[in-house]
Design a protein around this nucleic acid. Structure first.
Lengths: 121, 121
DNA sequence: CCCATAGTCAAGCGTGTGTTTGAGTGTACG
DNA sequence: CGTACACTCAAACACACGCTTGACTATGGG
């Protein structure tokens, strides 16, 4: 089940074995990080999730907030639901979505801060 | 150059105009966030950048740390360089990369914490 | 000068993704 | 019942991405 450790990797384990050995276990614990980050790696979807982190919203509202069609908003909301980041409840004709994973808030805030900080200079 | 604002978006601006009006300017300031997050939305590339955030490394070391070929490591490093997240210097036959944007550290740490927190339960 | 080595580049591949479109589902209300 | 509306679903399209492969550049040592 290992991916690749030996064949086309440099000659030996390369130049700085100490640093490499120190980093490998740490980095190895990050498996799956790409898949998780990919849930946020789209303008529309990040905006949707950030909006949900601020307020419970129906699909219609989400579409209006992010500037998308309801179909597109529904697509992203369903995707966020399936990956466990959002939850929903039905109330009459409306469907309300909300952020379901509070541990995501610091991530959203960190990314938001970074983006806003990059817009000034 | 605007994307879509009016046509198939609900009827009016939908159910909760107050929340929508409050969120729209905030969310509107997040343009480009998806493109930025996409730089981290891959297991290998996130690991590469995280490793760089911990230590200056040559391509060979990076490949060894993340378990990839030097070509794959070089591909991601070059991409990170082109997007301004990494910088490099040449020293003899070796090329050393490092994190060039310190403001990225809190983002990397927040994501790492989230991933590690999700692995326990 | 020539070879070995670290790194880069470009083409090609398999694969995945966001959006549109149009049809379908479910709820409310007269 | 039947219309109206919020929402969902599935197909299709266009596009982009990560990795491999093999050739190429650049540095340094014999």
């Amino acid at each position: 089940m290992d991916k690749q450790v030996s064949p086309p990797v440099c000659e030996v384990e390369c130049v700085h074995a100490d640093k490499v050995d120190a980093l490998r276990p740490v980095v190895g614990g990050l498996n799956g990080v790409g898949e998780m980050v990919a849930n946020l790696a789209d303008d529309t979807r990040f905006k949707v999730l950030y909006a949900l982190s601020q307020s419970e919203l129906c699909v219609c509202d989400v579409a209006a907030v992010v500037g998308a069609t309801t179909a597109a908003a529904s697509y992203h909301l369903r995707l966020l639901y399936r990956t466990g980041l959002a939850d929903y409840r039905r109330d009459g004709r409306l469907v309300y979505y909300r952020l379901s994973e509070d541990r995501m808030r610091p991530v959203l805030e960190a990314i938001k801060s970074y983006v806003l900080a990059m817009q000034v200079p």
